[in-house]
């Protein structure tokens, strides 16, 4: 039997990781869109940065965010002994 305190701590860590993931998710999509005009003053390789964030930048961050979330969560599972049996 796994003790309660451990389960609660596990869920807290999960919530923390989820919150951080969502904050970054919000900033690169909605945040960047709200500041698009100032970001557009910066140009990299011909891309105005504000446009780039909407077209590609936010997408790259999304992929990395989910990959990172999966990796971290698997670690947290192990840490609390809650991973699936292989």
């Amino acid at each position: 039997m796994i003790d309660r305190a451990k389960l609660v701590a596990y869920w807290r860590e999960n919530q923390k990781l989820t919150t951080i993931t969502l904050i970054i998710w919000f900033l690169v999509s909605y945040g960047a869109a709200m500041m698009v005009n100032s970001l557009n003053n910066i140009t990299i390789l011909g891309f105005p940065l504000g446009y780039y964030m909407g077209a590609q930048g936010s997408l790259i961050v999304f992929v990395l965010l989910i990959a990172n979330y999966a990796r971290k969560m698997n670690q947290i599972d192990k840490k609390y002994g809650l991973a699936e049996e292989e």
Binding site: T18, T21, L22, W25, S29, A33, V36, G50, Y51, G54, A55, S58, L59, F62, L65, I66, Y69, A70, M73
Partner: peptide
């Protein structure tokens, strides 16, 4: 859609990918 709407058409690009972040943290596992 991007051709016709320019920057504003990117709502579809961000929307149809960003949803997977929600799927990953809230539902799939």
């Amino acid at each position: 859609t991007i051709y016709a709407f320019g920057y504003d058409g990117l709502a579809y690009v961000m929307g149809w990918t960003g949803g997977y972040v929600l799927l990953a943290v809230f539902l799939a596992p």
